[in-house]
């Protein structure tokens, strides 16, 4: 099975590379794509969609010139091609009304404050990836080491029956 993509967006290259570095463990089962702007991410996503590649998760910075992360993630949630992608916002403004509204309007699955803690970041990613795997109907055994057991258990219990 071809690896799905995880897209990371931040306009500051030093933050972007730090994030990339911290997400290295996920390189085993996913392709990590770094982008420096919302526009670049849009372009990349169109390319990937055109070639039939899957995107599992997007992590985006909040404050960026031209188009900010919240606008980007909101747009994706209303695009039926991309609505299943899990969305994480990284923000230095957790009490910002825009952030709160975006979460409440379900366009963000999780927000992370800067500076992030690596362990927390990994835990959040595992949870969201597990949800995505189950949504896609994939076999979670193919993603050993990246699955959150609690999420798995809860979902199987509520959806009933074995995971196909």
């Amino acid at each position: 099975m071809k690896k799905a993509h995880i897209i990371i967006i931040d306009d500051q290259i030093d933050v972007l590379s730090a994030l990339l570095q911290d997400l290295k463990p996920f390189r085993e089962r996913f392709i990590l794509d770094d982008c420096e702007s919302a526009d670049e991410a849009h372009e990349l996503m169109e390319e990937l969609f055109a070639s039939g590649e899957k995107i599992a998760l997007i992590i985006s910075d909040h404050i960026m010139p031209r188009k900010n992360g919240i606008t980007l993630l909101s747009e994706l949630s209303s695009d039926e091609r991309f609505e299943k992608i899990r969305r994480i916002l990284i923000t230095g403004q957790a009490s910002h009304m825009d952030t709160i509204n975006a979460i409440n309007n379900a366009s963000i699955d999780h927000y992370i404050s800067k500076p992030w803690k690596v362990d927390e970041l990994h835990a959040i990613m595992r949870r969201l990836i597990t949800h995505w795997i189950l949504d896609q109907g994939y076999d979670h055994k193919d993603f050993e080491g990246m699955v959150d057991v609690d999420v798995l258990f809860k979902r199987i219990k509520s959806e009933g029956g074995p995971v196909n």
């Binding site: 290259i13 030093d14 770094d34 982008c35 420096e36 670049e40 990349l44």
Partner: peptide
Amino acid sequence: RGRVVPSAEAR
């Protein structure tokens, strides 16, 4: 020089 190659160019 630091990280001078933009992500799009690296791809």
